[in-house]
Design a protein around this nucleic acid. Structure first.
Lengths: 210, 210
DNA sequence: TTCATAACGGGACTCCAGTTGCGTTAACGA
DNA sequence: TCGTTAACGCAACTGGAGTCCCGTTATGAA
């Protein structure tokens, strides 16, 4: 009665091709229609795959998105190493900006985040994705600590989040312009806060004086 | 052939009651099911209102959410005035934290933002909502400028966004803990960046040195 | 190569979200 | 108070998303 999750026992050949086609079709549909406008029947048609297959293997749109996120977490973007914290953070901000304003990736991220708001496993997959991305760029901050640019004990993840957040906030919530200036301010703000010791490890969170 | 949007010509009595009941039912449904799990037929049932009415007057879930947002933009939250920028920003961060972690408001904000990702008018309503909220708290920064805490020309909206963003980022994207520490760090980071002149008006965006 | 079976696909079926038509109620102006 | 008609509600209808059954394909192990 307990059947294994489809795709985990025979992941080769046909199964892999089906998964690839379905994920691509799902991505296209999400970009064009947004999260609310996509259903599995349409994804199956686009992927030229049996409707039954899609329903059996994924079942819901958020579950399909969760699988996409697992795939996305694999593809690693190289971090910058410009020799200074400001340079590295500006490079990261520029990368995020380019991603979120991209004609395909921007709408895709919107749709993926929308899907994650209503489904716990999808949310978990999304969190994993960002954990990976944040960890990839953490060394920039570690190097800055070694160089003495920021206090010892500065939490790299906090710095990266502080930089990313304003750009996502514009994309999802406020709708304010998502341009080079916004990216530069985000990078500068994260750097300034890090230098001021806001992200240093002792819970000395009370705003330090300049 | 062109009929006026329902509710705009006779907004009194029955129409107002219907709108109220539908918006409340829609809010409940969004909180419980999330954006993806709500349809207008169910909302009509919950509101004990004719299905036809809901479809004629709103037509889609995002349109209904847009109407909710117009309502939400009305209810104004008073800003703090503690006498210092740090105090005011901490109060704002605490308010946002309380909202996003509230059992009803948290899920509601998630659902509303999800709805806005796929529908331009709803997104516009959301942006208006945040424009109002940000403008309400801008005086904190203006006062700080007068007190000499931050450079003249500091953009109040930028400061408020810089503070809000990390909390929304946690709620929607990274899933990192949304607690008092996070709120305090967000406030401290915004204050530090503002003091460093990151949000001052001349496009001197290149990170200033401490 | 052969075999057992995991995974896919076609097609019929169900169910309900969304539409339509029309009669009823009540808001608002005179 | 009365009449017009905006707005609501009921009931019948429709289309397609999601389910189920069963036959087919081709993977992976021996």
């Amino acid at each position: 009665m307990n059947e294994a999750t489809p795709g985990t026992v025979r992941p080769g050949g046909r199964t892999a091709r089906v998964r690839e086609a379905v994920l691509r079709a799902a991505g296209d549909a999400l970009v064009e229609q947004g999260f609310g406008g996509v259903d599995l029947a349409e994804v199956a048609r686009r992927a030229e795959v049996g409707k039954t297959t899609v329903y059996r293997r994924w079942g819901t749109v958020p579950a399909l998105v969760a699988d996409m996120l697992a795939e996305m977490a694999e593809s690693s973007r190289p971090r910058a190493d410009t020799g200074s914290l400001d340079g590295d953070l500006e490079a990261l901000a520029a990368l995020i900006l380019a991603t979120l304003t991209d004609d395909r990736q921007g709408p895709l991220f919107k749709a993926v985040i929308a899907a994650a708001t209503g489904d716990a496993p999808t949310a978990e997959a999304l969190h994993r994705f960002y954990r990976v991305r944040i960890a990839e760029w953490a060394p920039c901050v570690d190097l800055a600590v070694e160089r003495g640019e920021v206090p010892a004990g500065t939490d790299p993840a906090e710095v990266v989040r502080c930089l990313s957040a304003p750009l996502y906030y514009r994309l999802l919530a406020s709708g304010d312009p998502l341009d080079r200036d916004a990216a530069k301010r985000a990078a500068a703000a994260a750097a300034a806060a890090a230098r001021a010791g806001v992200f240093a490890d002792p819970p000395d969170v009370s705003a330090p004086k300049a």
